[in-house]
Amino acid sequence: MQLFNRRQASLAILTTLAACGKGNSVKTAPAPVFKRYAGPAVTQVAVYKDKRRMHLLSGDMILKSYDLGLGNAPVGQKKFEGDGKTPEGLYYIDRFNPRSRYHLSIGISYPNQRDRAYAAQFGRSAGGEIMFHGRGPGGNVVAPNKWDWTAGCIALTDTEIEDVYAMLRIGVPVWIHA
């Protein structure tokens, strides 16, 4: 009989605690809200460094185009970590970061095997973490009057990166032209 009373008491305590949680005044952060995209699939991204322009394409059709910022030393191929250049060549979308310090970010597959091999010839690192990203809190605080301010990434406005984030998927090819 005593065991039965302990079970009843335990259930009563748990029920009371659960009820207390419903009116809890502790607030949790709201879940992030992401834009949705229901149009044609993006089949490739074309970045033209010299024009500071990016196109999202479905087949041969341009779905959206954006002006962009590049690395702080944008001319030429990225060769080494810290050179401030944006890579050139074929890469792929390989990750999404909803908690980027630059609002949202989308990773590309730099460095690839060729990039690593080139840098290794000189005993250097090719670098990494090349992303499409927004400008982040406070805008571009690194170089407020410049578009080319990143360490090699491709920068858009926060509103634009929200659109791009919704449209891209893992594996989409990214052609970065000089």
Rank of each mutant, 00 (worst) to 15 (best):
V47W: 08
D60Y: 14
I93N: 11
Q77M: 10
M54T: 11
V33A: 00
G139D: 03
Q113A: 15
A73D: 11
A126E: 06
A119S: 05
D67R: 15
I161A: 07
I62C: 10
T86H: 05
L56M: 10
V45P: 09
G138Q: 03
R169K: 15
A38V: 11
Q121Y: 10
N72G: 08
Y66N: 14
H133K: 03
H133V: 00
G84E: 09
V33L: 06
P98Q: 09
F96P: 01
D115Q: 01
R53N: 13
L68H: 08
Q113W: 15
K79E: 05
D83P: 01
Y66L: 14
G152M: 07
H103G: 00
L57A: 04
Q113H: 15
Y102E: 01
F132V: 13
A155E: 01
H103F: 14
K49T: 04
F132Q: 13
A119R: 03
A46L: 15
P87C: 04
G127L: 08
D163N: 07
L70P: 02
A46N: 14
P98W: 01
Y102F: 14
Y165M: 03
S125I: 09
V164P: 07
N140D: 05
V33N: 02
R135M: 10
R99Y: 02
L63R: 06
K85A: 11
A31I: 09
M54C: 14
A117D: 12
I130C: 07
Y48M: 10
G89M: 09
E129S: 07
E160S: 14
P111T: 06
K85I: 06
P74T: 05
G139H: 10
M54A: 12
Q113D: 15
P144Q: 15
V164H: 09
N145T: 12
G152E: 04
G84V: 01
F132A: 09
P98D: 08
L168V: 10
G123Q: 01
E81F: 03
E162C: 11
N97K: 02
I62A: 13
R135S: 04
L57C: 06
P111F: 09
D67N: 15
E129N: 11
D50F: 10
Q121S: 12
S109L: 06
R53F: 15
A31T: 12
G136W: 00
S100T: 02
A46R: 13
Y102M: 06
M167P: 12
I93P: 09
A117P: 00
A31Q: 13
A38W: 11
L68S: 07
L57K: 12
V33W: 05
V75W: 14
Q113M: 15
F34H: 13
T86L: 01
A117H: 07
G134Y: 00
I62H: 04
P98F: 05
I154S: 04
Y110L: 01
S65Y: 12
D60A: 15
A38C: 08
R52V: 04
G152H: 07
V141G: 11
Y66H: 14
E81W: 05
F34K: 10
I170C: 07
Y110H: 02
